[in-house]
Simulated assay, not measured.
Amino acid sequence: MKIAIASDHAGFCQKPAMVEYLKSLGHEVIDFGPQSADRVDYPDFADKVARSVAAGKAERGVLICGTGIGMALTADKVAGVRAAVIQSPLFAHLFREHNDGNVVCMSGRFTPFDVNKAIVDEFLTTEFGGGRHAGRVQKIMREDDPGFGGVEC
C-alpha cells in the first residue's frame, strides 16, 4: 500500500521510526516531512498528506502532531478525506470499519510509539464494513459538495 506521512515538530519524535516501521511492513511511504524537529506549522504538512490521499497518489495517510487534533482539523477540510484523531487500536479499527477513514491522526506527545504502531496496524489492515455504514459515509461525504445546503431543521 502507498502511504503518505507527515508530522509537525511535536510529532517528529515518532515520525522517522514510523516511516521505518511502515517500510518494514512492505509499504511504499511518501514522507512529506518535516526532516527535523524545528518548529513548523502543522496545517502545511497535514494539507500535503490530505491532498495526496484525495488525489489518489496515496491510499492512506498518517499524521502525527502533538495531540493529533490540529492535523485532523486540517486534513478533514480537504474534499475526499475522512480524518480523525485516533488514540487506541480499537478506535482505529472502528474508524476504518464504520467510517472508511483514510487519514489517521495521532498524538506524538501523549500516545506512546508502541500504541501508535498498533493504531497504524489496525488502520492499515481493517477493511471498510460497507453495508449499513456505506450510506452513512455517503452522507458524510455530501458535506464536501458546495451545493449541499445541509439537512433541513
Rank of each mutant, 00 (worst) to 15 (best):
I69R: 08
L73V: 12
K77Q: 02
D76F: 03
N102F: 10
H98C: 12
L73M: 14
F95S: 09
V78A: 01
L90K: 03
A46K: 06
I86R: 07
R39F: 14
G61P: 14
E97S: 05
I64V: 15
L90A: 05
P89G: 05
G101C: 05
F91D: 15
F91A: 15
N99T: 03
M71E: 10
N99Q: 01
S52L: 00
K57T: 05
Q35H: 10
K57F: 04
G66I: 04
L73A: 14
A92S: 10
T74V: 11
A58N: 11
N102W: 03
T67C: 02
P89D: 07
I86M: 09
A83C: 03
V85L: 10
Q35Y: 14
D100R: 12
M71W: 11
L90D: 02
V103W: 08
P89N: 02
N102P: 13
D76Q: 05
P43L: 00
P89I: 03
F45D: 13
V104D: 12
V85F: 12
P89W: 04
G61C: 14
L73E: 15
V62W: 12
D44W: 07
T67S: 12
A92L: 01
E97D: 08
I64D: 12
A46V: 09
D38L: 06
G101Q: 00
G101L: 02
H98M: 04
D47T: 11
A84M: 15
D41K: 01
A54Q: 02
N99H: 15
R82Y: 05
D44L: 01
H93P: 05
R60F: 15
G101F: 04
D76R: 08
P43I: 12
C105Y: 11
A37I: 01
A72S: 13
L94F: 09
M106T: 15
A37M: 02
M71Y: 13
A83T: 09
I69G: 00
V104G: 14
G70A: 14
A46E: 03
R60P: 15
G108R: 14
L94R: 10
A92Y: 04
V62H: 12
R39W: 15
A58S: 14
S52A: 05
V40L: 13
F45E: 10
A79Y: 01
V49W: 10
N99A: 05
M71G: 12
I69Q: 09
I64N: 14
A37P: 04
C65L: 12
D47P: 03
R39Y: 11
